[in-house]
Design a protein around this nucleic acid. Sequence first.
DNA 1: CTAATCGTTCAGAAATTACTGAACGATTTT
DNA 2: AAAATCGTTCAGTAATTTCTGAACGATTAG
Lengths: 177, 177
Amino acid sequence: MTNNIEEVKEKFILHWGEMGSLWGINRTMAQIHALLLISEDALSAIEIMQELKTSRGNVSMGLRELISWGIVSRIHKKGERREYYTAEKDVWVLFRTIARERKKRELDPTVDILRQSVENLECLPDSEAEYERKQIKELLEFFETGIEVYEELESQTPNSILKLLGQTLKLKKRISM
Amino acid sequence: MTNNIEEVKEKFILHWGEMGSLWGINRTMAQIHALLLISEDALSAIEIMQELKTSRGNVSMGLRELISWGIVSRIHKKGERREYYTAEKDVWVLFRTIARERKKRELDPTVDILRQSVENLECLPDSEAEYERKQIKELLEFFETGIEVYEELESQTPNSILKLLGQTLKLKKRISM
DNA sequence: CTAATCGTTCAGAAATTACTGAACGATTTT
DNA sequence: AAAATCGTTCAGTAATTTCTGAACGATTAG
């Protein structure tokens, strides 16, 4: 059994990296995120580079991407020339931000395509492409519902979401904010 | 504006493929899925291969994977030697199945790692790794809540989920099952 | 001023992932 | 029986993604 801090950290970072690549996110980027997530203080690019044994350029690119996702931010320490980076630490805020970003990158474009498809299929005589039309319409409806639910949930606090779900479903009460 | 069926289908299939690769799923596999999704009748491997202009082996591998996800099934037509394939057509069932599979592949292992990490960190003196411990515990709690919510939702019908959400949040009523 | 430090970029290298098609076994047809 | 058809596998190749490190501009230190 490993009970050395460094080993635990490393294991966590490696796993987070794997999960990242199961999603569309590259490994190093996810590792940087994991490292920042469990580091109390902001880290400099060099520290990250050393910790993850990777190159300067790679860290720079990973950070850029994480910043564009809105889950890492740059910190200027006064008097310091070097820049520091820190991750969003609140787990709920973090996942909400990721959800928003994924919606933008995945759901929205998909709904666009589906809408266009439906529109184009509507121009055909009723008898043509019936099944395709039906299926695509169902998908569209599904995704639109998903977006609506997302938008409603987005405006709620985590606490009220859990309370809501907890009322009807019999969830153990877990409250974090 | 394109209003030819084949063009619309192709566009849809290509987009579904792209989305696939944004997730961890490979492009061909997602394309096969898209094709089956909007095909009323089951298709044979050869038809799929021709439609997607890809190789025999590739189709075979893609189908195997889709079947392992539980969203495509093999159909034996009596008297026919050739096998046919069809996708789960009900959108809600489809996404539920995917959710179950992703939970198994992503959430469960992550919770495992987090639990182990917490356990290992608990062995250390209180003063050590305080921050790491706090963060990892919060992540663990978050994921555990996620799994609970998932499990509760899994047992509900789509309709009752929407009704539930619709009550409290002011969603338009969308009902599909 | 020059040297050092820092972040960025990007061409090329390395690693990973996806795809092809030949080979195989199993079955069916002739 | 041989030939054809079908699905699978997998070694090799192709395509894609990720990473490296040198080069650069900008800033600061000496």
